Amino acid sequence: MTKPISAPLVHIVDDDDAIRDALSWLFSTRQVDTQVWSSGEAFLQAMTPETSGCILLDIRLGGISGLEVFERLRQMHATLPVIFLTGHGDLPLAVNALKQGAADFIEKPFNDNDLVDRVLEVLRSYRLSQAERASENALERRLDTLSQREREVLGLALEGRLNKQIAEDLNITMRTVEVHRARALDKMQARSLLELARCVDPIRLRSGTGSATN
């Protein structure tokens, strides 16, 4: 049984034993973990939703091609960045892959340090995007806990409306506004409106659907 991939690393997918070994050794000299795959089929079989890292993918593989692997990854909505290893004759294919969302391509023969530097750069960008995505998902989950009234109160407050004005706008008492505002800030894990304003647009708050209406 194939062990699922989970740890962030560089996945080297190449059907040439010598190239796989050379690349694995090259990355080890820069303290970069790798996992090698002799075919696109083997890599795809081991893929899980938790798989992370960067894929260094030979564009011409035995079995399914690197481009077919890339297409299947797109169909799976995988977010792992893909860097193609290409020969000179593959440049048009590689350029087209870039247009389809590949991170980059590196032409053989390549400079060892340049290749590792580029892969590390892609990995850093990937990890940053993953962190941003996790933060956005956490924010969305907190927004989903707000009632519709809490969204309205916070949205108006973020637009600069005073509690008295919000009460008049929503035809509720100032005390009710204060309660909704305090409860909403607590749910959003924000200590103040200023802190919340750094990550939430008032239009986003008021246009959403809360979990309740009171």
Score class of each variant (00 low, 15 high):
Ala197Asn: 14
Thr209Arg: 13
Cys54Ser: 10
Asp169Gly: 00
Arg151Gly: 05
Ile106Pro: 01
Leu98Glu: 11
Thr176Asp: 13
Ile5Cys: 01
Glu121Gly: 15
Glu168Ala: 07
Lys99Trp: 02
Gln45Ile: 08
Phe84Ser: 12
Leu115Trp: 01
Thr86Asp: 12
Leu139Gln: 13
Asn214Asp: 11
Ala134Gln: 11
Leu80Pro: 00
Phe105Cys: 06
Leu146Gly: 09
Glu152Cys: 00
Ala197Gly: 11
Leu44Trp: 06
Val200Trp: 08
Gln45Asp: 15
Asp117Thr: 15
Phe70Ser: 14
Asp112Pro: 01
Ile172Trp: 05
Asn113His: 09
Thr86Val: 15
Arg72Asn: 05
Thr86Gly: 10
His11Cys: 06
Val119Gln: 02
Leu170Thr: 08
Glu150Met: 10
Ile106Cys: 05
Thr176Val: 10
Thr34Ser: 05
Arg142Glu: 10
Arg124Thr: 05
Phe43Arg: 01
Arg206Tyr: 03
Ser125Asp: 10
Ser28Gly: 06
Ala42Ile: 02
Asn137Thr: 11
Glu150Asn: 11
Lys164Gln: 15
Leu146Ile: 06
Asn113Val: 09
Leu139Val: 04
Val10Gly: 03
Gln165Asn: 15
Ile83Tyr: 02
Phe105Val: 09
Leu26Trp: 03
Arg127Tyr: 05
Thr209Trp: 02
Ala184Leu: 08
Arg181Gly: 05
Thr86Cys: 11
Asp201Pro: 01
Glu50Ser: 11
Val10Glu: 04
Ile106Leu: 10
Leu185Cys: 05
Ala167Lys: 08
Asp144Val: 01
Glu159Tyr: 13
Ile166Glu: 06
Asp17Gly: 00
Arg183Asp: 10
Thr79Met: 09
Lys187Ala: 13
Gln31Trp: 03
Pro8Ile: 07
Met76Thr: 12
Gly66Cys: 11
Thr79Val: 11
Gln75Ala: 13
Thr2Pro: 15
Gly62Ser: 13
Pro4Tyr: 05
Phe110Val: 08
Leu115Tyr: 00
Leu73Trp: 10
Trp25Gly: 03
Ser129Cys: 04
Glu107Leu: 07
Glu50Tyr: 04
Ala18Met: 04
Glu132Ala: 12
Ser6Ala: 13
Glu168Arg: 12
Val69Asp: 06
Leu193Gln: 04
Ile83Leu: 07
Asn113Tyr: 07
Leu93His: 09
Gly101Glu: 07
Gly53Phe: 08
Ala138Trp: 00
Pro109Thr: 03
Val10Asp: 07
Ala22Cys: 08
Lys99Gln: 12
Ile59Arg: 03
Leu139Glu: 08
Asp201Glu: 15
Ser38Asn: 08
Thr209Cys: 02
Arg72Gln: 12
Glu50Thr: 04
Ser129Asp: 12
Val119Ile: 09
Val82Pro: 03
Glu71Val: 09
Ala182Ile: 00
Glu152Gly: 01
Leu162Asp: 14
Leu139Ser: 05
Ser125Phe: 01
Ala157Arg: 08
Lys99Pro: 01
Leu85Asp: 04
Arg74Glu: 11
Asp14Cys: 08
Gly40Pro: 02
Leu67Lys: 07
Arg151Ala: 06
Glu178Leu: 02
Leu128Ile: 15
Leu193Ile: 08
Asp169Cys: 12
Asp90Thr: 12
